[in-house]
């Protein structure tokens, strides 16, 4: 059959032309209808995927960096906090000691001044009573014994008496 068509006059040259032209037209139409958009879209998609991978890597790096920074800040903050607490504690300790010291000083001051006052008052009271007793006893003695004594003998007498009182006390 084939040899017949090749050798004989029956080679369908028109068909050959028709096949070629229709194939080329088909190819052109497919290019127009589907090939261009689909290959463009596939290219776009592969580009997008590549971009996405890159940007994902970038964001992951950034996130890691951020986490590291945050961790460092956290550590620093913790250190700061403990330092502040230590100073506060030290300050408190110091203040407490200061207060106690002050109070002690105050107390001892008060005590000493009180002692001094008491001593002074006692001295005054003693002096007063000595004076009073001396004059009183003089009066009494002058009245009772009606014997004249000079004031010096009298004072001596009274002093010895009062001393006796102080010892009894």
């Amino acid at each position: 059959m084939f040899s017949y068509s090749v050798v004989g006059a029956q080679l369908y040259t028109g068909d050959m032309l028709f096949v070629m032209i229709s194939f080329l037209i088909l190819m052109y139409l497919i290019k127009l209808v589907a090939w261009k958009p689909i290959t463009k879209m596939m290219q776009n998609r592969s580009d997008k995927i590549a971009n996405d991978i890159d940007s994902a890597k970038n964001s992951r790096d950034k996130a890691a960096e951020l986490a590291q920074k945050r961790q460092a800040e956290l550590d620093k903050t913790r250190e700061d906090a403990s330092a502040i607490m230590n100073t506060a504690k030290q300050n408190g300790q110091k203040q407490r000691e200061q207060i106690v010291e002050d109070a002690r000083n105050e107390a001892s001051n008060l005590k000493s001044s009180a002692e001094k006052d008491i001593e002074q008052q006692r001295q005054e009271a003693l002096a007063n009573s000595r004076k009073d007793v001396a004059s009183l006893s003089i009066e009494i003695a002058s009245k009772i014994i009606s014997k004249e004594l000079n004031e010096d003998d009298q004072k001596e007498l009274v002093n010895s008496y009062i001393e006796g009182l102080g010892k009894q006390k």
């Binding site: 006059a9 029956q10 080679l11 369908y12 040259t13 028109g14 068909d15 032309l17 028709f18 096949v19 229709s22 194939f23 037209i25 088909l26 139409l29 497919i30 209808v33």
Partner: peptide, 20 residues
Amino acid sequence: GLTFNLGNMISILLACLIVL
């Protein structure tokens, strides 16, 4: 001057249309 086979032409055209 070219010989055409109608059967072939119809079939080719049909195939092209189906593909398209």
